Simulated scan of single mutants.
Amino acid sequence: MILLLLYVFIAIAAIQIIYFLTFGAFAFAKDKKSKQYDIPVSVIVCAKNEVENLQQLLPQLLQQSYKNFEIVLINDASSDETLEVMEQFQKENNNIKVVDVENNEAFWGNKKYALTLGIKAATNDFLVFTDADCVPATKHWLTEMAQRFSSKKKIIIGYGAYAKKKYSFLNLLIRFETLMAAIQAFSYAKIGIPYTAVGRNLAYHRDEFYKVSGFINHMKIRSGDDDLFIKDAASGKNTAICFAKNSFTISKSKTSFGTWFQQKRRHVSTSSHYKFIHKFLLGTFFTTQLLFWILAIILLCTSAWQYALIVLGFRIIIQYFILGFAASKLKEQDTLYLLPILEIFLIIIHFGIFIANMTSKPTHWK
């Protein structure tokens, strides 16, 4: 019985190592820019009850070094002074356009409906999206994102980081989870099967939006204006990644485990609508992760512990090697100091999210 478990453990470890080698597609990728400069760009921000966040974000957007851009602000039926803040900035800056969206019976509280109206109102064909509750890492954010567009690459996937907070295990865990999600997203995009993006740092040409009739295929699903759009519109031919350090956006992480757990439930809820190949790859990675650590703990308590330790050590070395290069690209090296502990915590949390989403539906866009 122990020998059988050991063989299964070795097989699962081999599958995990294959995944990490696949992640090398991003870990060892070179940063590529196109020759397009100063193409007219529309920055689109959809906000619902975001007065304070907009007052922090908009000055930084206006200070971007890019020359040729407008800002399209979408007020998604806010109940606070969001619209007033938008209109005040519009009065003071001639490159700001405001779209005021009122709730209607057919699309009550639907962010995708609001985004669609904003996209239609945009003057330019090249669209760059961010959220009201984050800020560009530098004044060169827009330049970096826009320079990834080319005659073939019409969808650009960027990195949305979280601000570092000292002495906070939750912040470290959130940033580690974000790093792992980005590594998978970028790696699959690099090998030609993109499946997701983050709406706080995403860009695409208007034509790509209309080719798939916008969000029509998933309009009734509250989440997914980023990943489900990527599912419909992105391919290996039309998608590029942007991971230059000046291209990041920065958000504040949740300060309580409960609110972060609910946020992750919303994000994960859309994965059931992914293509089969992506569900298979993501599901297999998580399942083998879970089984790897369960079997590792069991075997380390048996007479085969020496062999289990060798396999465990070899897998962790490969993991550190690949993830180390990837984390260096995204300036998240400190998230790897407690790698095995963070990985086990994340496995437990994802399993909890899976169970919770099976029993109830998570709440969505405000």
Rank of each mutant, 00 (worst) to 15 (best):
141 W>Q: 08
357 N>D: 06
274 Y>D: 04
170 L>E: 08
134 C>A: 14
83 L>M: 09
191 I>E: 09
269 S>E: 10
32 K>V: 14
170 L>A: 05
180 M>Q: 12
61 L>I: 08
103 N>T: 07
4 L>D: 15
64 Q>Y: 03
25 A>Q: 07
240 A>K: 09
62 L>C: 06
101 V>E: 00
333 Q>K: 05
214 G>K: 11
3 L>C: 10
197 A>D: 03
233 A>E: 10
317 I>Q: 10
278 H>V: 07
295 L>Y: 01
277 I>N: 14
13 A>D: 04
256 S>P: 08
200 R>W: 04
275 K>C: 10
36 Q>I: 15
135 V>S: 01
137 A>G: 03
73 L>T: 03
150 S>N: 07
16 Q>F: 05
257 F>A: 12
100 D>T: 09
120 K>R: 08
221 I>D: 06
362 P>D: 04
180 M>C: 10
190 K>I: 05
134 C>T: 12
221 I>P: 10
233 A>H: 11
287 T>I: 06
347 I>W: 05
154 K>H: 02
109 G>D: 02
351 F>R: 01
124 N>I: 07
363 T>K: 13
189 A>T: 13
34 S>H: 07
100 D>S: 13
163 A>W: 01
165 K>S: 07
321 F>T: 08
181 A>G: 12
239 T>Q: 04
305 W>T: 03
20 F>S: 00
131 D>M: 00
251 S>G: 13
339 L>K: 01
127 L>P: 02
153 K>R: 13
156 I>M: 09
361 K>G: 12
332 E>V: 12
30 K>L: 06
335 T>C: 11
36 Q>L: 15
81 E>R: 08
90 Q>E: 12
21 L>S: 12
265 R>S: 08
68 N>T: 14
42 S>V: 04
137 A>R: 06
77 A>G: 07
352 G>Q: 13
139 K>S: 13
170 L>G: 07
146 A>I: 03
118 G>Y: 00
39 I>T: 09
240 A>T: 11
357 N>G: 03
103 N>L: 10
56 Q>L: 14
227 D>Q: 09
61 L>C: 08
181 A>H: 10
360 S>C: 07
117 L>E: 06
347 I>G: 03
164 K>Q: 13
200 R>F: 09
256 S>D: 15
156 I>F: 00
88 Q>M: 13
89 F>Y: 13
161 A>P: 00
38 D>Y: 07
44 I>G: 00
218 H>Y: 13
239 T>F: 00
26 F>N: 00
307 Y>L: 14
52 E>T: 12
35 K>Q: 15
269 S>R: 08
42 S>W: 01
26 F>I: 10
365 W>G: 01
